[in-house]
Amino acid sequence: MIELDNIAYSYGGGELLSDVSLKLAPGSFHFLTGPSGSGKTTFLKLCYGALTPTSGQVQLFGKDVRNMTRDDHAMTRRQIGVVHQDCQFLDHLPVRENVALPLTVSGRETLEQHSNLKELLSWVGLGHRANALPPELSGGERQRAALARAVIMSPDVVLADEPTGNVDWEMSQRLLQLLVELNKMGKTILIATHDLNLIRSAKHHVQARVLRISGRKLQLAGADL
């Protein structure tokens, strides 16, 4: 689904990532860790085509990102749900409409999905906040709304950048459970986090592999977590 072949990425001066290769197989569950500034967010952006590698090849669903048109990218993003660290919304629309936005822009808004939306919102604990505007939400609520928005299209892949950064332990367990459920339905999950407790608790529910970025390389972490 997502294949990175020997890629490197550098910002202006220095190289951030080099010799990175990874194949995200359908139905796999990965964690991505590493010190802050090590390139976790950059790595995720490479995975959904927001950034093009300086060298090497990235293939999304069998297509080389370098040959993808803007519309190809748009279609790819309907198959890859992304939760950003700084979740952005349309501030003039209520949470309910923001979460349903991917359906709206792809013209797939249906009544059936309307009830899914309700269910999804209550799952992420935002049932009572459905009509609030995004600026009225707390940091944790925003992250939950972003997660709901990322999964509403039932994408093949979910990429999440610190999805539990601002939520309490109980809520982070709940969000993790949602992602595990999605994984059991065959979705591919990649979560960037520095929360090792989250990774440990996940291991009880799902067979997750842990990737670590250190020294510009991507390594498969040992079982010592």
């Binding site: 519309d71 748009a74 790819t76 309907r78 952005q88 919304f89 349309l90 501030d91 936005l101 991917p102």
Partner: peptide
């Protein structure tokens, strides 16, 4: 520009 980047992120095509 923020609206546009949000729309791009969630898979809206340019013509939309």
């Amino acid at each position: 520009s923020q609206v546009i980047s949000v729309l791009r992120l969630i898979g809206a095509q340019d013509h939309y």
